[in-house]
Write a protein that binds this DNA or RNA. Structure first.
Lengths: 327, 327
DNA sequence: CTGTTAGCGCATTCAG
DNA sequence: CTGAATGCGCTAACAG
């Protein structure tokens, strides 16, 4: 740090290219500029190994250089979640390429101090919303125009990235049906989570279309809840021959709960999960599930807010089924 | 963003406190200042809800505002690891309180372009090294004095934070011994990883002290490798009655591999892991393991480099044993 | 399209 | 101990 020559500044680039600072700035940040000037600046940049000082840029532009991954939920504890860990890390890797950083924050379900503090923060470069409710997206869309992306529900002004869990659910249901299962129950995600509703709707739609019974038990994505829910399913509908878990953790819990009741998986009851976490393949029996491409989704969202890409307002990532032993 | 009053600036604080900007700056950043002036500035800060603009501060101070979690390893793929996800997220949460961000980067095992780019980056606020080799710590210690912390091996100038996996291993070995196991094998972590050597040493020490055989198979923390390693253990030492996995994933793989060979766990062979990942409790049999307090460690490391805390040069976090069914 | 002129908000000299 | 002045590196009007 001491011995290295000071990193080149825009001034140096301009001088070497024989243009003014502003021209160099335009060439780099992308303003209207002549082809000739652009080329000379580009050459100077390359020769000097120039890399813009993000702090200076943020200061002049009055726009922060920190992406915040904001998770909306009932309490801060929802931040303790492997799913979120993967999102934050994926975003951090994209950030590394853009010389910005990421921070993680919690947002309550209703507006409050946290929200105002977030949007008033001058260091804020953009926000990636995790599973936001509709009003939250709308509020942020107007407060931080062009600097918001959503992993979950979107909005005409906020690009959204999510897994096509309706299709994933459909694939799972069809597989179970093909395997002869006719009395399928579902252990859902938490009720306050918008994105958790989609699989439930799809499941309901398919059951009704096939003339099969709808059997819903509310879960919360956790294994503990899944374990308990398995008992509830069995008590209310003893002839159930399949259980769809809203997450792999739920499904693993369901399997444990079923085993507690002396039910065999997959012989008596088939069980499916959702996510395809690493341990899904190691479980006994190995879990049949649908993949949740978390990293790809988070990466796309990060690129969207960092690059201000227009792009389609909503992109759904496919959720391929992974066939294993549990169903 | 449009309607909100512009966030208070140092100028505003100074005016309200009736002092000059410099004095206000000193009061906040901590320079020599009179008690009276300090109090007035503090009051103004509180009243205005002033929060320093980190971009401006970084620019003036010539010191970045991004923490980089740098993972050293043979290839960038090592970034795809749930362990790292937890570290990055924990750091991101600490960063949120300090108005800075975090980015994730990979560093090759030998010096190279990646390293120079990292230390020359003017936006760099500090580095948290993950499992670095000795030379890497030394290099960064001199290049970025006072702005480095290590999760793994340290150095007199670089505070290190790690799990006391030697003690964790000892507890596991003693438990196995007390349960009557006498022929314990260990599936290790990757050889290039410094921190992976400690449990191996401790295991070797205890075996020799007890006059028991040392049975080592090299692993890589992965479940796949664990599964294969289980077969190797059985082939080389058929009378093995316990296997210590270097990680929970390894142990889960070992259990699967043992089962492939028709060996019962824990009846024939006891298996232990290390980490206590969420799924350890859900496995069948549930995994006996030693806890790895990743979040606490990462949080401490982040505080150390953000707060420039002197503190002890090395802190080892306890690794309590978690007794379950697998051993 | 280009150069000139002002700041962005803060830390730091340097006198007093 | 304090205030006035200077500059960090860059972008954004503004004329030309």
């Amino acid at each position: 740090m001491a011995a290295t020559r000071p990193t080149a500044t825009l001034e140096d680039v301009a001088r070497l290219a024989g243009v003014s600072r502003s021209t160099a700035s335009r060439a780099i940040a992308g303003g209207s500029i002549s082809r000739a000037a652009y080329d000379r600046v580009a050459a100077a940049v390359r020769q000097l190994g120039y890399v813009p000082n993000q702090a200076a840029r943020a200061l002049a532009r009055r726009t922060g250089l920190r992406l915040v991954v904001a998770t909306s939920g009932p309490s801060p504890e929802i931040l303790d979640d492997p799913y979120l860990d993967r999102v934050v890390t994926a975003v951090a890797r994209v950030c590394a390429e853009h010389d910005v950083g990421v921070a993680a924050a919690w947002l309550p379900l209703r507006p409050g101090r946290q929200l105002t503090r977030l949007v008033e923060d001058p260091g804020l470069g953009g926000v990636i919303l995790i599973n936001p409710t509709g009003w939250l997206v709308d509020v942020l869309a107007t407060l931080l125009p062009g600097r918001v992306a959503s992993i979950g529900v979107g909005n005409p002004a906020v690009p959204s990235f999510d897994v096509d869990n309706a299709a994933g659910t459909a694939a799972l249901v069809q597989h179970l049906y093909a395997a002869g299962r006719r009395r399928m129950a579902m252990v859902t995600g938490p009720g306050w989570l918008p994105c958790a509703a989609r699989p439930v709707r799809e499941y309901g739609r398919l059951m009704r279309a096939a003339g099969l019974p709808v059997r819903l038990v509310v879960g919360d994505f956790s294994a503990d809840r899944g374990r308990v829910a398995a008992g509830e399913v069995l008590r209310r509908w003893p002839d159930t021959d399949a259980v769809l878990g809203a997450s792999d953790a739920t499904a693993l819990g369901v399997i444990a709960g079923l085993r507690d009741c002396g039910v065999r998986v997959p012989d008596d009851v088939g069980v499916t999960g959702f996510d395809d976490v690493p341990f899904a393949a190691l479980a006994a029996p190995a879990l049949t599930t649908a993949r949740h491409p978390v990293t790809e989704i988070a990466t796309a969202a990060a690129h969207a807010v960092l690059g201000r890409l227009p792009g389609p307002p909503e992109v759904l990532f496919p959720s391929p089924m992974v066939l294993r032993a549990s169903a």
